[in-house]
C-alpha cells in the first residue's frame, strides 16, 4: 500500500504517494526526475547516491523514501541551482578530478559536507571523508587535490573578507 510522503527537495515542498519499498534514490530519480543522484551498488558501499538530508550526507539507496518524511533533501541539482559548490565543481574540472563522472555527484556531496564541518582539512582528513566513495577512474589523487585547493581558496577568501 502506498504511503503519503511530504518532504522538501531542493527548496520545494513535495507531496507524493510512494510504495514503502521505494528508496529515496529511486524516488528522486524516477518520481521527481532528478537523475543526478546515481545508483551503483544499492547497498551502501559505493557512495554514488549521496544526497544531503537535513544538511548531512546520507546514502539515498539506504534511506527509504518514507523515512524522508518531514525532512529537507538537497541533491546535486539543488547544489547546482544555488551555486553553493560552484567553486568545488570548477576545481574538479580544472584538476581533471572526474573522467566518466559516475562518482562525482557523491564525491561533491562528501566534500561539501566535509568543508562545512572542517573548513581546512588535512589530506588525510579528506581521504577519510571520502572513505565511502568509490571512484573507478581517477585514482583519487586528483579528487583530493581539487578538494584541498577549494578548501585553501575558500579560507583565503574568508581571510580577505575580514
Amino acid at each position: 500500500m502506498k504511503v503519503l510522503l511530504s518532504t522538501t527537495v531542493n527548496g520545494e515542498q513535495v507531496q507524493e504517494a510512494v510504495l514503502p519499498r521505494t528508496s529515496l534514490a529511486d524516488f528522486l530519480r524516477e518520481d521527481l526526475g532528478l537523475t543526478g543522484t546515481h545508483l551503483g551498488c544499492e547497498m551502501g558501499a559505493c557512495g554514488a547516491c549521496l544526497v544531503l538530508m537535513d544538511g548531512v550526507p546520507v546514502h539515498a539507496c539506504l534511506v527509504l523514501a518514507v523515512q524522508a518524511e518531514g525532512s529537507t533533501i538537497e541533491t546535486i541539482e539543488g547544489l547546482n541551482e544555488t551555486g553553493a559548490a560552484a567553486d568545488l565543481q570548477a576545481h574538479f574540472h580544472d584538476r581533471n578530478a572526474l573522467q566518466c563522472g559516475f562518482c562525482t555527484n557523491g564525491m561533491l556531496m562528501s566534500a561539501q559536507a566535509l568543508l562545512e564541518a572542517n573548513p581546512v582539512p588535512t589530506r588525510d582528513e579528506i581521504r577519510d571523508a571520502l572513505s565511502g566513495n568509490y571512484c573507478r577512474c581517477t585514482g583519487y589523487e586528483a579528487i583530493v587535490d581539487a578538494i584541498d585547493t577549494t578548501a585553501r581558496d575558500r579560507a583565503a577568501r574568508t581571510e580577505a573578507a575580514k
Partner: peptide, 12 residues
C-alpha cells in the same frame, strides 16, 4: 565511532 563504517553511514 571513527572506525564504524563511513561518514555518511554514521549519519544514519
Amino acid at each position: 565511532a571513527p572506525h564504524v563504517a563511513h561518514p555518511a553511514i554514521r549519519n544514519r
